[in-house]
């Protein structure tokens, strides 16, 4: 299976601190890959590199076969439409209702008629199991789990090829955690035909083991382990064992 994202000898150095240390790996297309690690391991920096929001000090990153360094500012913005991202705290626009948040990318980037936008948003809202009564609420009137679902619907609106999830279960109760985890898996299954690649950044080892096809463990900017879920569970690496026992 081809890789949707590849890192080749990628390093990122801020002053004296090496945040990413000579990383070489590939994220397989059409699968769910989770990056686990303690705080400060370099997970968020890695995600910013994937989105082209920051550039590596050395090395090469390709996404969907495109070398990110060859794109100028405008090209990079155009290219980012291949990505959908669900933020840790959803990052919904607080001046728009849940419905309008999901409609936002459609209004910005498509020439769909109002009736088509309404139909598409309704379909997305139903896909993430949001009841119609909540559609016209502002983000401040929604629970954490509902906000994440709206964030997921918004991220899916333009049918991205790569979905990024930043700490999707952080701050949620166990039931909401399960609902959001199931949604990640369901989203991947529903979009399996177009080979949607999902990349999850998380601290939540249990949820990660349940939803992922592959798991990468980062520590101090280096890959400690990168394998299938089964391989990860069977790892003899003491750091992984300690993390699994948490």
């Amino acid at each position: 299976m081809a890789d949707a994202i590849t890192f080749t000898n990628v390093s990122k150095i801020y002053g004296d601190a090496t945040v990413l240390n000579n990383l070489t790996f590939g994220i397989p297309e059409g699968q769910i890959t989770t990056i686990l690690g303690f705080s400060g391991a370099g997970k968020s920096t890695l995600m910013k590199h994937i989105l082209g929001l920051t550039h590596p000090t050395s090395g090469k990153i390709t996404s969907l076969g495109t070398d990110m360094e060859t794109l100028d500012e405008l090209g990079l913005r155009e290219f980012r439409r291949n990505f959908g991202m669900v933020f840790q705290y959803a990052a919904l626009f607080d001046f728009l209702t849940a419905f309008e948040n999901v409609a936002f990318p459609l209004r910005e980037f498509t020439k769909l008629k109002e009736s088509e936008i309404k139909a598409k948003v309704s379909e997305l809202m139903q896909a993430v199991e949001l009841v119609p009564e909540s559609w016209q609420r502002l983000p401040s009137e929604l629970s954490g789990g509902m906000r994440k679902r709206v964030g997921l619907a918004r991220a899916l609106a333009l049918e991205p090829r790569i979905m990024l999830y930043d700490e999707p279960t952080s701050g949620l109760d166990p039931i909401s955690t399960q609902v959001v985890s199931d949604l990640i898996v369901d989203t991947a299954k529903q979009n399996a035909q177009r080979k949607l690649t999902s990349l999850v950044i998380s601290h939540d080892v249990r949820a990660s083991l349940r939803i992922s096809d592959n798991i990468m463990f980062l520590e101090k900017g280096k890959i400690v382990e990168y394998s299938t879920v089964q391989g990860f569970k069977n790892s003899n690496n003491p750091v992984i064992r300690r993390f699994l026992e948490l």
Partner: peptide
């Protein structure tokens, strides 16, 4: 206040990720 609160709640990042400056 509007832009600052959008920044601290990652709404500016959300715009960036969508390809909107």
């Amino acid at each position: 206040a509007q832009i600052g609160s959008m920044k601290v709640t990652e709404q500016l990042d959300a715009l960036e990720v969508m390809g909107i400056n």
